[in-house]
Design a binder for these strands. Structure first.
Lengths: 329, 329
DNA sequence: ATGAAAGCGCTAACAG
DNA sequence: CTGTTAGCGCTTTCAT
């Protein structure tokens, strides 16, 4: 493989000039520029990326931490991130954490190793204090999940409001026994959603029951499991607020397969507004999160951080969420 | 940020020894090894990835070309690739081509730039001759899509058989007007599926009609569009073979919303067996592709290529596909 | 078992 | 506008 020196030799110029042409510097005469292009062409030359990164201390790569590649919410997030990354010639190193805090830690070290210029987190598996340490080595942008412990660049939704609206909707439909499903961690997002659920309950004088709280609910199978578990309860929920359309779909499917009618006997509300929400029968009432937009905003924030012109007022972007009423409630 | 020289100094050793410890070389005394570990710890040292790559000419990174990040079939492929990559400490640079051949070309150049050690293609947008040129710069593994023009490492399914089985199933259900939906390109996979469809038609003496061929069908919306288009036809299909569950779901949804019954009036068969196939009402008959397994096999092949011990007989891996009969046919 | 030294391929002062 | 030169941080002979 040809090197920059080979090109310089072939063009009868110095490697510095070749480098200038590669990097589109000004002050290179059109004549020599053509000479360089011809030589590069003739030698089938392509600059070595590692050498460029080592020397320039810029990788043009962003690490994106994703808990689950097969969860559509996160792929839409990724789609938004990728759209902006492509526009600005950044590459994406995709890091699947599987909700494992050690994997998250492992990937965070890419920042220290200068393998990436910055990291976008779409979930948070470690204490914030642990993550904050890495901030010295490059920008960390939060997207979807967030923290109040520090002012960091983040793109988020009012999750408490989302859970409140959803729960209130179920109450207004006449339900008083409302199950609550969520993932496993103790992130701020989780805390806030939980608070929104309780706020709605409180407002309507409905007692909070621990039995109605279901954790470790991430996907369709988990939703089915949750519903099966309620079958043995003395006082089972008649409605479910869930943290994801996948889980909601599982509950709906399992309820129907056990002979219940949705929304006749059981009401279910999802979260995200993934494609599955419109495909399910009955169609799923849900809280819409603009996933693609969250992602694109996060990547834009990242670019601003990298280019050092970020106004503190832009650090915390909040996007709207929206109740979409369909047939499942 | 500390460098290897700093660590060497702090440990009272040479940088060569530190390097040996980092790379787990033999012939380093336990004593010095501990010294190095302590120094690395104290200085919060992490080796610079670009320097390692430049010097060792190994990036430990694989480029994965994906047409659509939001298409579940490809994310399951990616999931399989990622599982094996993680096990072997490889990183993934995700390249979304959006079915654009120029983007594909752009990403192929990462091989020339030694930014990745190899590339896994999950779709093919350029002529095979164009892609074959890049093979000099590192291994290219095909996964899902394939070619007969050259013996390259690939993991594939018998797509002609898949389309044949699916079409025959529709014929056996009594249909003689069978629509055929596919994506846009002219890859071998597309050609083979088309051939399988025609073979089934031929076998049962059913004429092939150009009007029943629908191209550019990739997702749910495309499926809806296809069905709407048949509404104006004199002799519309009563059944549809599709290249993806997404498209099939679109057809089913649109048919039902226009008052047709599925499978009463219209039968639809999908491809992939994505989660949506079991969630749809009626549930979707489909040709199951073991996506995760295709991906993991591809990454395993890649690793073998990189480690130079690949037997030509292992180059072409063929996995089974399977007709899954549900309610939509 | 350890160190000295060369060099991977490139960029960026600096000088002219 | 162009060339000379000094590294970026690491690995790897080659000695010892």
């Amino acid at each position: 493989m040809a090197t920059i020196a080979d090109v310089a030799r072939a063009a009868g110029l110095s490697s510095a000039t070749v480098s200038r042409v590669i990097n589109n510097h000004q002050y290179v005469s059109e004549e020599k520029k053509q000479l360089v292009y011809q030589a590069m062409e003739a030698l089938n030359y392509f600059p070595n990326a590692s050498a460029q990164k080592l020397r320039s201390k810029k990788t043009n790569t962003i690490g994106v931490m994703i808990p689950q590649l097969t969860n559509p919410f996160f792929t839409y997030l990724l789609e938004g991130i990728d759209r902006i990354a492509t526009e600005h010639d950044y590459q994406l190193l995709v890091c699947q954490t599987k909700n494992n805090r050690f994997k998250e830690l492992h990937f965070l070290n890419y920042l220290k190793a200068k393998q990436v210029d910055g990291i976008i987190l779409t979930s948070i598996e470690n204490d914030w204090a642990t993550i904050a340490d890495y901030h010295t080595y490059g920008p960390i942008v939060l997207c979807n999940e967030y923290t109040y412990q520090m002012l960091v660049p983040m793109v988020r939704l009012d999750q408490q409001e989302g859970a409140y609206i959803g729960t209130r909707h179920l109450i207004e439909k006449g339900h008083r026994a409302i199950g609550y499903c969520f993932g496993g961690n103790t992130s701020q997002l989780t805390i806030d959603r939980h608070a929104g659920y309780r706020r709605a309950l409180n407002q309507f004088g409905i007692p909070y029951k621990k039995d109605w709280i279901f954790r470790d609910a991430y996907d369709l199978e988990d939703g089915k499991r949750v519903f099966r578990n309620t079958l043995e309860m003395d006082n089972p929920p008649t409605a479910f607020f869930t943290g994801s359309d996948q889980v909601a779909a599982g509950i709906v499917k399992e309820a129907i397969s056990h002979g219940f009618s949705v929304p006749g006997d059981i009401s279910v509300i999802g979260f995200d507004d993934q494609p599955i929400a419109s495909v399910l029968e009955p169609t799923l009432t849900t809280i819409k999160q603009p996933a693609e937009e969250i992602g694109s905003n996060a990547m834009n924030l990242m670019i601003k951080c990298l280019e050092n012109h970020i106004d503190p007022s832009e650090m915390d972007i909040q996007l709207p969420l929206q109740l979409i009423v369909r047939q499942s409630t």
